[in-house]
Write a protein that binds this DNA or RNA. Structure first.
Lengths: 144, 144
DNA sequence: TTCCTTGTTGCAAACATTCTCAATAAAGGA
DNA sequence: TCCTTTATTGAGAATGTTTGCAACAAGGAA
């Protein structure tokens, strides 16, 4: 199930104009089952329309993020990743040394995020962020 | 108190060479009391040496991050921020809509990070990351 | 339906960051 | 001290992302 129309309605309600470019971009990221870079979105956009500019892709994705319809995060490969909220909350533990990624289960983080929301009146949903540190392999192989 | 010499020793122990460029860059970020962008580090570098390249600044800062001596995070203004571990752990709640930043107290996050370290054998220290969401002002002013 | 206002787009330039590669120099051994 | 190995540097090109601006077009008003 796609939230595509929900997203468009919410944007319209916020006073944004619905353009053909935005419809195409939102449809792509809403239907895609994974997070994507702006360039990956752009490739799918080209299959549907030949004249949408990469700047419009960036602007539309960032607009979604600012309005809570998507999240962006550092994917670690030099490109920013975008995803809609339907992927659910998750935290990535990214090793600063080897780059390996461990996914924190939803159960482990829910209590923390609820506490944040209670204490700070801050709506964390959707959330998708990374914590940097050292994985056990890299830590155990250190000289000191 | 600066951890400058501790940082240099740790890098030497890890097999890195200590160059004049690295000494200057590490001294700057170790003595600075706040997080800085690469360009801000570069400005201070220029006061001490006229011939260090910005690429070397980026490389040195990233080397510190990869070895657990500093952390990097998205400051929200289009530039990446770097900080040494001495600032202690903190989480920033960044509003996706208005960009306002709320700092989570150390007490509130320590239990969470300890749990992460226990469950995933992942050393989070030093840590400095952001959670994106909607602050109460922006959420309450929404139309639905 | 037509007009008007103003948000949005495409383009190109600007900016932030990373990469390539030849020249340089740190660190250890002789 | 000098030599050798090889990590590191500077310079500039390449890449990823943002911004400025004139032309365009969505959506409401008439």
């Amino acid at each position: 199930m796609s939230h595509c129309h929900t997203y468009l309605k919410k944007l319209r309600d916020h006073g944004y104009r619905i353009t053909p470019q935005r419809e195409i971009i939102i449809q792509i990221i809403a239907h895609c089952g994974k997070h994507m870079s702006a360039e990956e979105v752009m490739e799918l956009v080209r299959e549907k329309s030949s004249s949408i500019n990469i700047a419009t892709v960036y602007r539309t994705l960032d607009m979604m993020v600012e309005n809570g319809l998507a999240s962006k995060f550092d994917s670690g490969n030099g490109k920013t990743a975008y995803a809609t909220g339907k992927h659910g909350p998750h935290i990535h533990l990214v090793c600063k040394h080897c780059g390996s990624v461990t996914k924190v289960s939803e159960n482990d983080i829910s209590a923390f995020l609820e506490k944040i929301e209670d204490l700070y009146d801050f709506d964390c949903h959707p959330y998708h962020f990374s914590i940097n540190g050292l994985c056990s392999d890299c830590r155990h192989s250190e000289s000191n």
